[in-house]
Computed example of a mutant assay.
Amino acid sequence: MKVQNKTIVVTGGGSGMGRELVLALLLKEVKVVALDINETGLEETAKLAGQKSASLTTHVIDITDKSAVEERAVKLIAENGYIDGLINNAGIIQPFVRVNDLSYDLIDRVMNVNFYGTLYLIKSLLPHLLTRPEAHIINISSMGGFLPVPGQTIYGASKAAVKLLTEGLYAELTGTTVKVSVVFPGGVNTNILSNSGLEMPKPQEGKAKARKILSATEAAQMMIAGIEKDKYRIIVGKDARIMDILYRLNPKSAATMITKQMSKILSH
């Protein structure tokens, strides 16, 4: 779907990759509806949009509240006249600990934001999207959604659920006007850690400098390019592309490789 002159909802639009998606879409003459739980973050996004902010509306919402999402979806359609696209970007990670040391409260929080928040938006907007001449649902999974990462197992499970939800939707919506894409970002420089209420364990000296992390701006541009090509899978970043290939060729070896990389973090 070509995004120009479309109206697209972006969750997590108050920071990180969500903010960069909002700003990049505005430059493409998109009418953007940005959702986030952080009002201050949304205000900053609107400020950064500058003159383009006339094409931006912001809404504070907790996407884990099903009733609030359903009510807001009705209002968004009424206020905008129509919605053409939904980018489910909002997400959080878990503390860098093993499942055995993770509380059920934290497990529920990750699943509620990453999976159920995504599902609530889809269920609330899909009936309307099916009435549009063309529409697109984009769900952001993760490299951790197809590759096990020790210390992020529940996060990975939530993103794997998003992956299969998206692929199932693609199959169910084949032959309709609604396109569906799943996005697999690798390492992207965002503030997901602070948004998740976490601090990143310090990497080994020298390794942090050697590892090139994709900027959120670059990641957003890659995603939009994939959307406009109606790609089924949008893999963002060299690391995600390499691990996607390795995991399909030899899942056990790929998992062992990641386990070795994470071992020092989990030993603390």
Rank of each mutant, 00 (worst) to 15 (best):
K2C: 00
N5H: 14
N5E: 15
T7Q: 13
T11D: 12
G12K: 04
L23T: 05
L23Y: 08
K28M: 15
K28H: 13
V32S: 09
E39T: 14
K47T: 15
I61L: 14
I61N: 07
V74A: 14
K75R: 13
K75E: 15
A78N: 12
G85C: 11
N89Q: 13
P95G: 06
P95T: 05
L106G: 00
L106A: 08
F115M: 02
G117F: 01
L119S: 08
Y120T: 02
L121Y: 06
S124I: 02
L130P: 10
R132L: 04
R132M: 09
H136W: 06
I137H: 08
I138N: 00
I138T: 12
I140L: 14
S141R: 00
G144Q: 06
G145R: 02
L147W: 01
T153H: 01
I154P: 01
G156P: 04
K159V: 07
K159M: 07
A160V: 11
A160R: 10
V162L: 01
T166M: 07
T166D: 02
A171F: 14
E172H: 10
L173N: 08
V178S: 07
K179A: 10
F184P: 06
F184H: 14
G187L: 07
L193A: 09
P201S: 04
K202E: 12
R211W: 08
L214G: 02
E218W: 01
M223D: 01
D230M: 10
Y232I: 03
Y232G: 07
R233G: 09
I234M: 00
I235L: 00
D239N: 06
R241G: 00
D244A: 14
I245N: 07
L246I: 01
R248E: 09
N250L: 10
T256I: 03
T259Q: 11
S267F: 00
H268L: 07
H268W: 04
